[in-house]
Amino acid sequence: MREKKPSLWLRLVSLLIYAYIYIPIIILIVFSFNTQKLNVRWEGFTLHWYEVLFNDANIGLATRNTLLIAITSTIAATIIGTMAALALQRYRFPGYTLIESALYIPVIIPEVVMGISLLAFFAFIQFSLGLLTITLSHISFNIPFVVLVVRARLHGFDKSIEEAAKDLGANEIITFWRVTLPTILPGVLSGALLAFTLSLDDYVITYFTAGPGSTTLPLRVFSMVRFTVTPEVNALSTIWIFTVFIMMLINQLLTRSNT
């Protein structure tokens, strides 16, 4: 069965589905180079919208905020999440099952509910909304995803190399830095990349935890496309798509080197 090639009609249907996935993306990219502002039909090639984009101070600020939040929350979630993955994979302790299932809460509950619960929480402790509240919230939805990814990689980890290191006289800390971490590093980086992407992508939770002056790119794009179509957003989308494409290529290479 596995050796048999998919039938012609199945390949045809799949081709159509791939077209359905990619046509909107291609239209988006092509029309970022269109001279016509209303973007109704193709008029001519221009890089004008990229120039507009780079001179847009709001976009600049939003980009800075987005990267700041994504980098900070990724680092924090990766460290905390990797520790938890090690704990869950290697040790048994009281409350194990409880924590294991609690980790699924942010994955399973609707985003809007998580968003309003964080908003209510910050209001309750009278913490003013801004970059810090967004970052704290992003860390909380990123931790479970890092744990899931790192645990999946730890699953195939050969413990005997750690024991070998200890037999050779390395203590816990040296064993971790010299043996454990390098071995699980591709998994950790993979988890970090997922966390980074989720943070970049997030609209709903950011929307509820943002304050004045802490607008991120998704929030900015939302307000730009709410009532109108503008080629500037096409230019931004094009850059975004290529950035993601490169990040995913790196991830693919990491995954490959791990297996």
Binding site: T197, V225, S237, W240, M248
Partner: peptide, 20 residues
């Protein structure tokens, strides 16, 4: 990989493509 690339892009951008 081909399925994942467009869907790792921002989801507001994907909605915008369909608005266009």
């Amino acid at each position: 990989f081909l399925i994942l690339v467009p869907f790792w892009t921002n989801f507001i951008i994907r909605i915008y493509a369909w608005i266009m």
